[in-house]
Amino acid sequence: MTAPLLEARDLVRHYRAPGGYFRARGTVRALDGVSFTLHAGRTLAVVGESGSGKSTLARQVTMVETPTAGELRIDGRDVNADAAYRKALRPQVQMVFQNPYASLNPRRTVGQLLEEPLAIQRRCTARERRHAAYTMLAKVGLRPEHYSRYPHVFSGGQRQRIAIARALMLRPRLVVADEPVSALDVSIQAQVLNLLMDLQQEFGAAYLFIAHNLSVVRHIADDVLVMYRGKVVEQGRKHDLFAHPQHPYTQALFASTPRLRARSHEERQTLPLPAPESWPLAPDSGP
């Protein structure tokens, strides 16, 4: 197999938790030694509950933050070692967010939103940008007349199409999608998932797909990474992982997920989690 597009080695990200009157300053280990590889054109799903470090991982991969320790390699080179390399990579790594009501600037028309990444990168003339925006609109299933409209006239599903179109304008090699369909209705969710898969076929981008809905993950992913409290508890090929979950947390996650098909009582009982949600949430006292 060829070299991976993205490789994380022992990625660590700590945050300082502010101290209060009754609480010492602590360290939150949001990411605590995460390693994985992602090849071009493939989809790696990251699964876990809130606080597991999924979104922290997204911030490291999109180079918005610098990891506390560990290496993030794209095309085999450490992105945090070389500022010029990092800068060159930025257009190649794009992001789609969960809430398309918050992620689109309400004061920009769809056309402006789509052309902005191209304008920032100064790749082409205004005319070419305009042409690229119209082409992309068609690809994500929107109509040419939508070009001059503002985000507020669109439904949630259409907005997410706009957000996806914007992320793809620079033809990124890696798209980080943080819960891109969880704010959408089921019928719209299916449309957007299909769109994401079609666009991956067409552009060959790799997806780092963050989600909590296992049935969505089962549909879209090639590989799955299960996170819990900043650590990877299990990772593997989708088929193996869904057929034979090894870790007790993964098993608990599967058992907790409601199904349409009737399940036996044993199958659906709520397993006690390895560590129940603590009360109140206290940051680990770290180094």
Binding site: Q158, D185, V186, A190, L193, L260
Partner: peptide
């Protein structure tokens, strides 16, 4: 039927999810 069909669980083995065209 269409709601059920658009759930990934009902589409195992399919490359594409079945959808309901249009919006509410």
């Amino acid at each position: 039927q269409a709601l059920l069909d658009s759930i990934p669980e009902h589409n195992e083995g399919r490359a594409r999810l079945r959808t309901i065209a249009g919006v509410v």
